[in-house]
Design a protein around this nucleic acid. Structure first.
Length: 132
RNA sequence: GUAGUAAAUCGCCUUAUCGCUGUUACGCUUUUGGCGUAAUGGAGGAAAGUCCGAACACCAUAGUGCAAACAUAGUGGUUAACAGCCACCAGUCGUGAGGCUAGGAAAAGUGCAACAGAAAGAAUGUACAGGUUAUGCUGUAGUGAAAUCAGGUAAACUCUAUGUGGUGCAAUGUCAUGUAUACCAAUGCUUGAGUGCGGCACGUGCGAUUGUUGGAGGGUAGGCAGCUAGAGUGUAUUGGCAACAAUACAUCCAGAUAAAUGAUAAGGUGCAGACAGCUUGCUAUUGCUGUUUCUGUAACAGAAUUCGGCUUAUAGAUUUACUAAAAAU
RNA sequence: UGAGGUGUAGCUUAAUUGUUAAAGCACCGAGCUUUUAACUCGGGUGAUUUAGGUUCAAGUCCUAAUACCUCAA
């Protein structure tokens, strides 16, 4: 498994994003929050993922760009956590909800926590269904 | 050295590892779109604000007249063009180097001037002095930003001169997917409903087998072209006070689209602070040295059709020319 | 990316260039009441978003900045 994040893995479709935000569930680990939804994707990738920073918290484009770059980097280096534990296709969106400019180490540790939570949450679901 | 003025330049660097994205070459697959490997490009001086001017595209290759609106405003030059830039004149601010100026017209007309003041085009008032037979008259005083054959105000209306058709790459073209030539109301079919991208008239084009307008609703939310070789960039020479122009040689320098140019580690560079040491005749609320002393911080800010300007933001560094006040040699 | 609009007391709104920028609600003080509310009387707490310019004089005119809002597939 390579640590890459190419065009195919990006979440682009506006329809899918609307669906994600209206139907998806979320896990959070300050200062990050991830919305996820299990769907069928047209693309060949197993995940479609996007990152987002609110214009309300960061008015300047360079700040937003930098935070998004850090988030992408953290995803790229830690995506194995997710890939080793999923069976179906997922659409994901990671949001930055803090108010201060972060450092890379903070983002990375938060991302790892976030992904572990996500894996737990998604693994539970099928187990519950089996029990019921 | 201190305090300033003007002009110009730079605005973090190197290496390693892991990534993002454009192009080219080769190979693989063949759903003609992917995958892999290699090579080689990849943010700015303001990319920003969107304040002007253009290119380019479409609307009738943009037409005639009238009206309106808007912009500009010393003189000359420069430019594809401009409200920009350059030179000069005038005014104004500054001790000075220099800075700033929407800087046409008030005998074409209309309007405006609070408070104060007798009076702010309507009458010439009061006091004193001069003069006179006396009045008219002349000067001074007080109010105010402005006070008499009036002047001021045009970033008040206005006049003069010049210019401006509109909309903007979400323009526009094309391919794919998909749907509704359906429903309701009004109106019309060559004697013309309407419509053509701001007003009116003329003129002109389109116009009914599926018309036009309004209502309520359905579908698409993707790809490609436009889309990066241009009023291009660098150097030199020549002309010109300058802005700028011409010639020669060299050179190709981002094209993303939930939106690429990054992360980590090490070292260096700049700056700020602390600490330590040295220096001080004069100028000077200090200066210099220290990276095998430590800490902090990397300013403003991210291309989105492309150029020329303007405006605003900006840690800090460098260079050149000049000014002021003294002092030392 | 492009086009357009608005900023005035704590809040909602006024004001034709010309005294100290007006009104309602809120707020503060006093009165009434055993006390509170209601009621009565009194009080303005603001560099008119910011900075320049024109003018004798600017909330108003002009230029630039800034914040917020709206529209266009």
């Amino acid at each position: 498994m390579k640590g890459t994040y190419s065009k195919k893995e990006k979440l682009k479709s506006k329809k899918l994003i609307d669906k994600l935000f209206s139907e998806g569930k979320s896990v959070s680990s300050y200062p990050l929050r991830m919305v996820y939804l299990a769907t069928e994707l047209n693309a060949s990738a197993e995940l479609n993922i996007g990152v987002s920073v609110s214009k309300r918290h960061f008015k300047k484009a360079p700040d937003r760009n930098r935070i998004k770059r850090l988030m992408r980097e953290a995803y790229r280096l830690n995506k194995t956590i997710i890939f080793n534990n999923i069976t179906t296709q997922y659409a994901l969106m990671i949001l930055y909800i803090g108010n201060d400019k972060p450092k890379y180490s903070d983002i990375e540790s938060a991302t790892v926590k976030l992904f572990n939570k996500f894996v737990k949450a998604t693994k539970k679901l099928p187990d519950d269904e089996k029990i019921s």
